[in-house]
Design a protein around this nucleic acid. Structure first.
Lengths: 158, 158
DNA sequence: TATTGTTATACTCTATAACTATA
DNA sequence: TATAGTTATAGAGTATAACAATA
């Protein structure tokens, strides 16, 4: 790997204590982008009163019904203790439900209610317009794919 | 603009209520990446007991000393009410200070202390190793630049 | 009247310890 | 003894309203 200096030859040599420009700091730019995307999500789902975590839970249950609470929670990086209130909310709204598993009576398997299935259609319609808006910001699906690939490289190495 | 179907001809036609794969959802992948980068930041700065917001504040003060509290706060998207405790902490640690502005006696201009200037060298050294690690995850500086450019497109359209 | 910094407060998200019922 | 779900609680981060000093 060759090291090519990125500095303008006219510019003064950088010292080690040069403050980095905020707009080039990965974590900072990442955070600002995430807040902006989440804000658009929140605005989009204000009428449905659905938060990102709730969207993700419903989506995961729909994709694979019957999974245990702790399985869904872990996939989303939510501590099982914090998942309880989240699931309580979805259950009170009649969108999803806990079922006692006959094999292991400690665990709850999660399912959508018929009302929840119906809600999903609305949810996806709203999500799709939100996601299309984000793809438009990026410049198209090819850029979205590039972004997702780069973001995956940053994630998940605990 | 032409619309090219991305579907496998063998695959069943997608309905409007198909649950999207989580790993393709921009907001979700973005959030996971941000948490992972921040976790590395927090681990890196555990010894210096410095949080991302504190790092950003010190960095902005160093880049442009004398700015008002509300100016620094606004650049970082922090409400001025919430900035007070943050600045109190930096002041109590002797890293930065408020100075009464002679022109406008309502406002405080922010500066690093001599101890704060000294702290910056340590801070940048730690930050640099963190940032290099993130660039390594991405695959190099070219990928970092591509990522930053894509993230900028997602941000800041309030 | 408007603005700067401040206080108080509330709400969300997150993290940990301890409990219960099952295994 | 260990695990799944639960409760209680504490700590960040964030949002709003109201106040004092100053413009």
């Amino acid at each position: 790997m060759t090291v090519t200096p990125h500095q303008d030859p006219q510019a003064p040599i950088k010292t080690t204590v040069q403050p980095p420009e905020m707009s080039t700091i990965i974590g900072y730019v990442l955070r600002r982008a995430q807040l902006s995307v989440f804000q658009d999500f929140l605005d989009s789902f204000a009428a449905l009163k659905l938060r990102p975590a709730e969207f993700s839970v419903l989506n995961l249950i729909a994709q694979c019904p019957g999974q245990k609470q702790s399985e869904i929670a872990e996939q989303l990086g939510i501590k099982r203790a914090n998942f309880v209130a989240l699931m309580d909310g979805l259950e009170k709204r009649g969108l999803a439900e806990r079922r006692k598993s006959p094999e292991d009576k400690r665990s709850h398997s999660l399912h959508l209610t018929p009302q929840g299935e119906c809600f999903m259609a609305e949810m996806f319609a709203v999500w799709r317009t939100h996601e299309e808006r984000m793809i438009e910001r990026l410049g198209g699906e090819a850029e979205r794919d590039r972004l997702v690939e780069l973001l995956e490289r940053l994630s998940d190495r605990a």
